[in-house]
């Protein structure tokens, strides 16, 4: 038996055996369909729907209890784990700052790099890169990625998506553009390093302000919460949009938008910097070293 056949046979056998094991219940009992009302129970509790439902064996009115979020993880964790997210964001912030410090160019030097790399570059609207087919399709895909990443971030309060996920999905767009269309395409659509730096700083500022505003405003009183997400009637500052937009929003929706900006733009900066040919940035950094050293 050849190596290839052996691999195919073993994969097939493994999947059959695994399937058998799982369906026979060796790895644990398989949930029955009668457990489904439990899911409904959780969903209604979290959404704070003021209606009475019948979930065997209880009749409950979830309006008496609430988690104020339709998304399970947010309902349980956000108000307690929000600080964790704040620190994660700070780590990412320092990582990007570090890379920008490594690739330090003045405005003039950057212009020079652009001019130099532009010399072996075709006329306007024609980008170096892969074939015409790939370039055209990439332009369309890039557009859809940007729209979808925004949708991921803006539905973070309902789904397992969120700002970081949306931002990471967004970052695929500039990466694809650099590979298929060259970095000058990013210049043409306005994805420049400094623009991205501005967007990223804006995102981080919004996150920091949102976290701190309730505390600052609540000085002298105990009724304010740092990084408050869920509505608390007794808190002075209510940092969440009103109900009535059809979905229940916490302050999470603002954090998600800000995080999308910070992460998406942060990754874009890294990709733009990494796409500068080595021969240019090494020369500039070395020259700087000699001057100061």
């Amino acid at each position: 038996m050849s190596k290839k056949n052996l691999v195919i046979t073993s994969i097939t056998l493994t999947s059959i055996v695994l399937g058998l094991i799982i369906s026979l219940g060796v790895l644990g009992p398989i949930p029955l369909t009668s457990i489904r009302p439990l899911g409904l129970f959780y969903a209604l509790f979290m959404a704070n729907r003021n209606i009475t439902i019948e979930v065997f064996p209880l009749i409950v009115n979830p309006g008496n209890f609430w988690a104020a979020s339709t998304e399970a993880i947010t309902a349980i964790l956000w108000d307690y784990r929000g600080l964790d997210t704040l620190f994660e964001t700070s780590v990412f912030f320092f990582a990007i700052i570090g890379s920008i410090a490594l690739f330090r160019f003045t405005e003039k030097e950057e212009h020079e790099i652009r001019k130099k790399t532009h010399e072996n570059h075709a006329s306007e609207g024609k980008y170096l890169g892969l074939s015409l087919i790939t370039k055209t399709i990439t332009k369309i895909i890039l557009f859809t990625i940007i729209v979808v990443s925004a949708a991921i971030a803006l539905h973070g309060q309902l789904t397992p998506g969120g700002g970081f996920q949306g931002g990471s999905a967004f970052a695929v767009a500039p990466l694809l553009a650099i590979a298929a269309l060259s970095r000058f395409y990013l210049d043409d659509i306005g994805f420049k390093k400094n623009t991205m730096l501005l967007l990223r700083t804006m995102g981080l500022l919004i996150i920091a302000l949102l976290a701190i505003i309730p505390v600052v405003a609540g000085i002298g009183s105990w009724q304010a919460y740092i990084m408050q997400n869920q509505p608390k009637e007794w808190a002075i500052i209510q940092l969440f949009p009103p109900k009535g937009l059809g979905v229940l929003l916490g302050s999470l929706v603002y954090y998600n938008i800000a995080e999308l900006l910070a992460v998406g733009a942060g990754f874009t900066i890294i990709f733009i910097l990494l796409s500068i040919p080595e021969e240019f940035y090494k020369k500039i950094i070395e020259k700087e070293g000699v001057e100061h050293g």
Binding site: L142, V147, I189
Partner: peptide, 8 residues
């Protein structure tokens, strides 16, 4: 998205 990308 349209303002950024429609022209390309």
């Amino acid at each position: 998205a349209s303002v950024i990308l429609a022209k390309t």
